[in-house]
Design a protein around this nucleic acid. Structure first.
Lengths: 110, 110
DNA sequence: TTGATATATAAACATATGTTCATATGTTTG
DNA sequence: CAAACATATGAACATATGTTTATATATCAA
């Protein structure tokens, strides 16, 4: 049971977003902002690596669609992948996204 | 200079996302995931309330577009608004989004 | 009540995104 | 090498999103 501690200084951190970083932050958030992709991140936050088939089974999702989403997140730098024989294993590369989702999950939305 | 401390337990928090909450989290993230809307949140994290014109001036953005984004975020429950004479002041209602953006801002993206 | 100011709204459009389906690629096993 | 398995890819499509333009609404001040 791993616990992370994060120190957030809201005042300076959010103000300093230059246009370029703004785009990047928005881009990452847009990539995460999808139920299936959040689920995949959820799985990969608990399992170090999972192959496409594992993910399909655990989520009950179709191979092609799952693959598209995985490719998307890989392109965005959120996931990485590694081949092992017939399987390709995906893993979380940008682990900070866990914090983002966890934070959202914690608040009473709307 | 306000500092927040957040305790995140990644293991249980992210796993428990039921389908409904999943949709909500994705929805909120999708709403935030836009450069201009992140900028607005940034402004409202430092200024308690701002009217549309203030925001337009500070961002150099057009009235109509700004208004659209504000309406969008209000609908999603992220912002609230209050009229004062000719002006309508917007404020952050779902303050947790600050944490989300701050977190993203802190990490080296890609 | 008229004009000026502040904001919202609606239509129209271009573009981006999510999904499905069919097919291609790569890898192992017999 | 052929068959089976695992995954990726591309085309096609429906839908959602962001933006602009023009116009409407609301409030104040003279």
């Amino acid at each position: 049971m791993k616990v992370e501690e994060i120190q957030l200084n809201t005042e300076d951190l959010i103000g300093n977003l230059d246009p370029e970083k703004l785009e990047k932050v928005a881009f990452i958030l847009k990539t995460i902002a999808h139920p299936m992709r959040i689920s995949i991140i959820g799985l990969l936050s608990v399992n170090e690596k999972l192959c496409v088939n594992d993910i399909c089974e655990k989520l009950g999702s179709e191979q092609s669609l799952t693959s598209h989403h995985l490719a998307n997140m890989k392109l965005s730098g959120i996931l990485g992948s590694v081949r092992d024989g017939k399987n390709i294993f995906y893993y979380l590369k940008l682990k900070e996204v866990i914090t983002v989702i966890t934070c959202m999950n914690k608040c009473q939305l709307i």
